[in-house]
Amino acid sequence: MDTLLSSEGDSQRTQYPYVTGTSIIAIKYKDGILMAADMGGSYGSTIRYKSVERLKQVGKHSLIGASGEISDFQEILKYLDELM
């Protein structure tokens, strides 16, 4: 298993994701960028969750989107909230 060192000591990240999936698309146009994502969360090969947030505003002018394992995205959002 991968190990990531942090100020709080050693923490481990999963190599076997549980809730995965989604598609994210971003389109640049003259006046800005449009981002969209589906809200499905798969557990194995079955869509189990139908309202998973995959886009998050960060600050006044930024938006972040993530696909794949939801816990990784939640961890990133936690760090960003601490920085804000």
Rank of each mutant, 00 (worst) to 15 (best):
D2V: 12
D2F: 03
L4V: 15
L4F: 15
L4I: 15
L4Y: 12
L4Q: 12
L5R: 13
S7M: 14
S7P: 00
G9R: 08
G9P: 00
R13D: 08
T14Y: 04
Y16Q: 15
P17N: 14
P17E: 14
Y18E: 12
Y18S: 08
V19Y: 10
T20N: 10
G21A: 07
G21R: 11
G21V: 10
I24W: 03
I24G: 04
I27V: 15
K28P: 01
K28S: 09
Y29T: 11
Y29F: 09
Y29I: 10
D31H: 09
D31V: 05
G32Q: 09
I33R: 05
I33L: 11
L34C: 07
L34E: 07
A36Y: 05
A37G: 09
A37V: 06
D38P: 01
M39N: 00
G40H: 08
G40D: 00
G44W: 03
T46N: 04
R48Q: 07
R48N: 10
R48V: 09
R48G: 00
Y49K: 09
Y49I: 13
K50I: 14
K50V: 13
V52N: 00
V52S: 00
E53H: 02
R54M: 01
L55V: 03
L55E: 02
K56G: 02
Q57G: 02
Q57H: 06
S62A: 13
S62D: 09
L63H: 08
G65R: 06
G65N: 03
G65C: 05
A66D: 02
A66V: 04
A66E: 01
G68I: 06
E69I: 06
E69Y: 12
I70C: 02
D72Y: 05
D72L: 05
F73E: 02
Q74P: 00
E75C: 09
I76K: 03
I76R: 01
K78E: 10
L80R: 05
D81V: 09
D81E: 12
D81Q: 11
D81F: 03
D81G: 00
E82D: 11
E82R: 14
E82M: 15
M84N: 09
